[in-house]
Design a protein around this nucleic acid. Structure first.
Lengths: 152, 152
DNA sequence: CCATCGGGGTTCCCTCAGGGAACTTGGGGA
DNA sequence: TCCCCAAGTTCCCTGAGGGAACCCCGATGG
């Protein structure tokens, strides 16, 4: 957890950060997504401290983005994405697209994604859920919504 | 900066985290995006420590996602998104969409976005940049790309 | 011409989170 | 019986975040 908790802010970005904003959490989520689902695997893959990995996994389970499943009669577990967690993968795909574009350099993207629907190597792009046209930084106006903080 | 630097990993998610993965950075970016562009404004809005805000702003400038502009003959500055930073707003919009859906609760979203193209209140959705069909967690296969780490 | 103001930091100290390595637990298998 | 292995737990050390006070510097004003 960050020192300051973001969850109480009237801001969906801040609240989302309270769930996956801690260091390592997005990378843990990525590993679980691609099937690296066990404690030892994730720890070895990321080089994360075992203490911190335990904390992060517990937090992600509490937040309902991953679930703990036994896979043996011994106390052995694997972690899987819940529906809530699977939708967080949208975030990972956008991070991937941005990192590929701005940070990959000469070598090119370390990982490519083949889209099932068209069979092509592609990347995610943002579209308006309503009209399907592109939706980026300059294409929207923010307005106060129903959950906005009351100005007392 | 996180204790462990992610930038050296062969992973665009990790590299992106090196740019905006620190606590507060996404919220600072949001403020700059919506026009809260001065040090005092951001500090008051977020309640962030001045020390940390200075560090984050410097880091974001170094990474080329925001720029420092004088707005007076006195030493007064405001921060603006660069093209690189504006594309990071995609990330914020996806965080917003996810937070609105899973964390906003009864009260509803604190902020709404009106899409210029269609004039409707909407949210961002992920589409394949190639074929335009939806692109979510289960719709892709990851493959090694040109920048993948050589297995020595 | 000196005093004051206010934005934009900088410095200092304190606490607590992350890193690393050793230790523990609880079932199998030889 | 002894050892093994996954999955944590515990310990100490370092360094980052919080908070408040302080500083710099150009503008303004009496």
């Amino acid at each position: 957890m960050q020192r300051t908790k973001f969850g109480e802010m009237a801001c969906s970005i801040a609240r989302t950060l309270d769930v996956i904003g801690e260091p390592w959490s997005p990378l843990i989520l990525r590993d679980v997504w691609v099937g690296m689902s066990r404690f030892e695997q994730i720890q070895a893959d990321l080089g994360i401290s075992r203490k911190v990995l335990t904390e992060r996994l517990n937090h992600l389970v509490e937040q309902g983005v991953i679930e703990r499943h036994p896979y043996d009669r011994r106390p052995r577990y694997e972690y899987r994405l819940t529906a809530k967690g699977a939708e967080l993968v949208d975030l990972l795909m956008i991070m991937t697209a941005w990192g590929d574009r701005w940070l990959a350099g000469e070598a090119g993207p370390p990982v490519l994604y083949r889209h099932h629907a068209c069979g092509e190597i592609s990347r995610a792009d943002l579209r308006c859920a309503h009209c399907g046209e592109p939706m980026h930084a300059g294409d929207v106006d923010p307005l106060p919504g129903p959950g906005a903080a009351a100005a007392t």
